[in-house]
Computed example of a mutant assay.
Amino acid sequence: MKNRQNIFNLLFGGLLSVFSSSVFADDMSDNRVFVSSDNPNIVYMGRISRSIPETIRFTYPGVSIYANFEGTSLQMKAKPGSGSFMVEIDDNLPYRINFSEKDSIHTLAEGLPEGTHSARIMYVVEGYEMKPEFKGFYLDNGCSLTDAPVLPTRRIEFVGNSMTCGYGVESDNPLEPFSYETENHYYTYAARTARALHAQHLVVARSGIGVYRNFGAPRTGSSDCMPNMYNQVFFSDSTELWDFSNYTPDVVCVNLGTNDTSLDNYDIELLTDAYRKFIKKLRNIYPDAKLVLLSGSMLTGKSLQDVRNAMDKVAAEMNGDGDKEVYRFDMSPQTGSLGMGADYHPSMRQHQKMASELTEYLRKLMNW
């Protein structure tokens, strides 16, 4: 699975006049126009930092860059080693690029018709190790960015773990270990749901994280569980906190509990209390948002029932205390009938099923 996208791009990229190639900064023609990442006509979605001039930094998957540009080509500049992005130019099919340690510039498109074009670029891996940075775009000589894109007014926030990140989705071998090559948030239930509902989406997720206990952690819990990391702009840096006024969601979807119950070494009372405190925290931050507690799709058996019971209890308590905007929804557990991704994570088809279920639920809940 992980090579199919690359093969497709090689076969059809020329027909679309859209492709990616990496070059070094020294290879750039002097007559191209550089547009810095702080240009007001570039629009961002997701948790980003502007603390360094002319540099946009981020670590969570799903962070997206939008721009409209003139000319026949577009190149993107980023810090070497930033990792992988999915790129969409105009209405052409998306394709994946990767900034390795040797890449500072990627050609996103060339040979386009004269005129104005759109670019949508999504970061699709977990960047807490890579610490990605977006620097800006190179345009044809004499060209510029045009009016800033207008993003959808609907807004969703997804809080989760490896499933929300896209761990292993581009693999079809459950015995394959984790690899950034097979992680791709673009194909997750979260990103698919947002696209289906024509909504923005912001992601706060990391593989292995829990609401009180991360994967393999002591029964008593983890100091770096989701509630303790939630306020940070970067997962790996507590020095810069997120300004929640930058993005106010209409609905927050929380998909946690899988790692808490890992290895059958958990305290259900601690898990329930952690969920209770986290949902109250979200309510304080977002007084008007609907909060949806999700399960799916890796839990089975007793752990699935325990997590569902914990979420049911917290939702009922919140409703009983007068907060009627806390909801529950269960996506289907995976059975293997749709294949498995790396490390027995949801396959691409399983993510599509999850997205179809969640899209229908949110469409009715939100009257979208």
Rank of each mutant, 00 (worst) to 15 (best):
N141I: 02
G127H: 00
K131V: 05
N141W: 01
H117I: 09
D140W: 03
D103Y: 00
M130G: 01
V159K: 03
Y138V: 07
I48V: 15
G62E: 03
R154Y: 08
S82P: 06
M130E: 03
S64N: 07
D103I: 03
G81Y: 03
S82K: 05
C143V: 06
P152I: 05
S162N: 06
K135P: 00
D91T: 15
P53R: 04
P53S: 09
I156G: 02
Y123T: 07
T72Q: 14
G136D: 04
G127I: 03
R155Y: 04
R50C: 08
I97C: 09
A67Q: 02
L93M: 13
N98C: 10
T107S: 12
D103C: 02
V87D: 06
L108V: 10
A78P: 03
L108H: 10
L74H: 05
C143R: 14
K79V: 03
Y138H: 10
N161G: 05
I65F: 09
E129Y: 01
L112D: 07
E114W: 05
N92I: 06
H117M: 13
T146M: 12
V87E: 10
E54S: 12
E133M: 11
T153W: 02
S104G: 11
G127R: 01
I52H: 03
S162H: 08
N92A: 10
P61G: 01
P152H: 01
E126V: 01
S118H: 10
L93T: 07
R57P: 00
F137V: 14
I156Q: 07
S73Y: 10
R57T: 10
P53A: 08
T153P: 04
R96L: 13
R50Y: 12
I56D: 01
F134I: 15
R155W: 05
S73N: 09
E88A: 10
I121N: 06
M163W: 00
F58Y: 15
Y138L: 10
E88T: 14
S104K: 04
T72I: 06
L108M: 15
H106A: 08
R57W: 00
H117K: 11
L151Q: 06
I56P: 06
V87Q: 09
G115R: 07
D91E: 13
D91Q: 15
D91V: 12
L145S: 07
Y60N: 08
M76R: 02
S73M: 13
